[in-house]
């Protein structure tokens, strides 16, 4: 009994000191960042570096998708929204800062010998007109079509590029994020999916049995995304209201500057160079 009391006493003492410690750093600035799950891991690294260089500033990064990021900024629930697509014409009430580019590529199993697919062939696969690999030559068996759940921006970019409607898609497996897509394709030699080029390069280097196939004619590498020759690419944006508060603006400058380019490359994205 007394041992337990000692522990409780020690614990509350520690808590008290922790509380004191927090209240002593005067005027903690808190910046809330929400939105795209594609940008979030990168943003967490950027936030960590920024916090280390700016004591007294705390950056909270939360995920929930690009649309959530945008609506959180509009409802003033967040200071900065992460949006992994270009802003539409009806979205000019907010200001976007582009920090990087990301491309979308098809992935197939490493055993699949196919080198490339034309846009029409991809369209045929995803609308259910082509159901067997024999139609494209050197690979056989029925095609397993992997697509993304509604609301994901990768799906939006894929549909935009192929000029398809969500209702045209005939998928066998619908997944949430890049990781799941990789697992499904790695486990099924006859599957085809589409994911962020960053994620595809990461997994190819980690010996996962998947291979990236280009959408269009240019090789799907982050270098080609960076120089703009790869056609299916999306902007990774940070969104705020125009004229943000000084600490938010300082953080935006940091996140779009040279000093985070190594972090962007670590995440297999391409720094925005303009």
């Amino acid at each position: 009994m007394s041992a337990r009391k000692t522990v409780i006493a020690a614990f509350s003492l520690a808590l008290t000191f922790a509380g004191l410690g927090v209240s002593h750093t005067q005027e903690e600035v808190r910046i809330v960042v929400t939105g795209s799950s594609t940008i979030a891991p990168l943003m967490m690294d950027i936030a960590q570096r920024y916090e280390a260089a700016h004591p007294g500033v705390q950056v909270d990064v939360q995920t929930g998708g690009s649309s959530r990021g945008l609506s959180d900024v509009r409802r003033k629930l967040a200071d900065i929204g992460m949006v992994s697509r270009a802003l539409g014409a009806d979205e000019n009430d907010v200001a976007a800062t582009r920090i990087a580019w990301d491309g979308v590529a098809l992935i197939v199993h490493a055993q699949n010998p196919l080198e490339r697919l034309s846009d029409d062939q991809v369209r045929a696969i995803y609308t259910g007109q082509a159901t067997r690999w024999e139609a494209f030559g050197s690979w056989d068996g029925p095609i397993t079509v992997v697509s993304k759940a509604e609301g994901r921006s990768t799906l939006g970019i894929f549909l935009d590029y192929l000029d398809l409607d969500i209702r045209d898609i005939r998928a066998h497996t619908i997944i949430g994020d890049n990781e799941q897509a990789v697992k499904v394709v790695a486990g099924n030699p006859r599957a085809v999916g589409y994911i962020s080029i960053g994620a595809a390069e990461y997994h190819a280097s980690a010996m996962t049995p998947i291979r990236a196939i280009a959408l269009g004619a240019v090789a799907p590498t982050s270098a080609n995304v960076a120089n703009g020759s790869y056609p299916v690419r999306r902007e990774l944006n940070l969104v705020t209201y125009p004229d943000p508060a000084a600490p938010v603006e300082a953080f935006l400058r940091f996140a779009s500057g040279q000093q985070v380019h190594d972090l962007i490359s670590d995440h297999y994205f391409s720094p925005a160079s303009d």
């Binding site: 066998h172 497996t173 697992k183 486990g187 099924n188 006859r190």
Partner: peptide
Amino acid sequence: TVLVPHIAAWQPPGT
């Protein structure tokens, strides 16, 4: 990782 690939080998897509 185990069950779905086995079903896929027999009756695709497995999922």
